[in-house]
């Protein structure tokens, strides 16, 4: 069980959170093609390495935030606000 650094509350056990999957997905407009819409809904990269993802501290402060996690080691490298761009 990971320890997630909530952007507000600090380190908490993973079971207080909901994982929202890959972050920075751009929702297509309503006139997008069926293919573009399906890719937005269902297709995801599965990187062996750094992954930008969003989490919500559901059983805590209720805030959504972004973090960068290494998918192999689960090391969490950085946390940043929901509306911020990914750090480099």
């Amino acid at each position: 069980m990971m320890r997630i650094p909530c952007i507000v509350c600090g380190l908490r056990d993973e079971n207080e959170f909901t994982c929202g999957g890959t972050s920075h997905l751009v929702r297509p407009a309503i006139d997008a093609s069926d293919r573009d819409w399906a890719e937005y809904l269902f297709f995801r990269d599965n990187p062996k390495g750094l992954h930008h993802e969003r989490w919500r501290h559901t059983q805590g402060c209720g805030q959504w935030f972004n973090l960068v996690r290494h998918t192999l080691t689960h090391e969490i490298l950085t946390v940043y606000a929901m509306t911020e761009s990914p750090p480099r």
Binding site: G20, R27, R54, R56, T58, G62, Q63, W64, M82, T83
Partner: peptide, 13 residues
């Protein structure tokens, strides 16, 4: 309620 919060915090900010 969680779905509503998600839209408000993540998309329709």
């Amino acid at each position: 309620a969680a779905a509503f919060e998600e839209w408000l915090q993540c998309e329709f900010t």
